[in-house]
Nucleic acid binder design. Sequence first.
DNA 1: AAATAATTCCCCTTTTTAAGGGAAGTTGCT
DNA 2: AGCAACTTCCCTTAAAAAGGGGAATTATTT
Lengths: 203, 203
Amino acid sequence: MIKVFLVEDHPLIIEGIKSMLAEDTTICCSGICNTGDALMQLLKQQQPDVILMDINLPDINGLELCKMVKQQYPQVFVIGLTVNNQPGIIKKMIDNGASGYVLKDAFKNEVIDAIKAAANGQVFYSHSAASAMRKPDNILPSLTRREKEILELIGDGLINQQIADKLFLDVTTVDTHRKNMLAKYKVRNTAALIKLAINERLI
Amino acid sequence: MIKVFLVEDHPLIIEGIKSMLAEDTTICCSGICNTGDALMQLLKQQQPDVILMDINLPDINGLELCKMVKQQYPQVFVIGLTVNNQPGIIKKMIDNGASGYVLKDAFKNEVIDAIKAAANGQVFYSHSAASAMRKPDNILPSLTRREKEILELIGDGLINQQIADKLFLDVTTVDTHRKNMLAKYKVRNTAALIKLAINERLI
DNA sequence: AAATAATTCCCCTTTTTAAGGGAAGTTGCT
DNA sequence: AGCAACTTCCCTTAAAAAGGGGAATTATTT
């Protein structure tokens, strides 16, 4: 019997997963939480074989949560779950110790297959996740803390001087970060940078 | 007995809805399609009392589909369904004849309540949809054809001169449109404009 | 402890955008 | 036919970003 925890904040998805898993007698879903925090509390009491985890949770980023779980409970296998097919995030989840990735357009058997594979220590991707992986553009550089901070303020419409004032920095520093981001993502200007950052969920 | 059709392309959500509706004996889900096209075909043969319709379908925009359904089958009630809480889109759905709107973070009873309300000709919003409606900023001005065209090119990183060349316009014209958009949305610069446009799904 | 990455600050010049106007032709709709 | 909204073009000046460098200090990771 494979013991599964589900971390998901959308009741509809919870129902869907529960309903799918109910059809397989070798899997039992013994814990459901809707936040990362609730999961960490639950794990203190008992550990499942597999955690099925939504990447977009209200309280914590899925990548962080996955890393935390694997650090404290390395024997527990984690499977990522998400609606939005974010190129690049799949690879990052695997880097953070995940045993698989299932997009929400996955079919019934794919969820079950992923859980079974994970329980055996294998890695599984749903069909759509695998095809997303094959795209070469999934190796986007990530933003540093500071860059992300600055990029968010840029997106809010602040100019370099205002950002500098807000973060107690020199204007030239803000400008340097801005230029580094343009170079990092090989975009021509701020407009393209913001578009890319939002579409890739970097901010 | 309320006859319901479900238009949804994510198997997980389909399972969730089916599972929720199974618990209510006065509702029967007698048709499931995963595209707008499939729905229109199905409607030629039989009409349900209520259609539960995902706004983000692979083949057609939910707003358009809702309008089409209501034009051809005015007696059928339509309920919108979506993960992404897009401020403004709810109002547009209602304008297009929808009888309700349910976000995917809705609870079990909210989906059932929405269906029952719709079957009685009433309008129902899920808790989260209603709170999204209350926000005054759901009446954002829309972009004109030209503005949208130009904004997309701005987002691609083109500068005014390049946009002008591409659309066979004068640079000043492109600049005027850019200024109008900044004024229209009361934003300070292009970065904020792009962010707003993407978040509001204007481009 | 060494190497790498991140953060910070500075110089310069050129290009592009923003903000303030005005004006006129075109399209669409009632 | 008339009005409103859209589209088009023009002017000027100031401000901001882009592009090209360099360099020193702190974290972080190996």
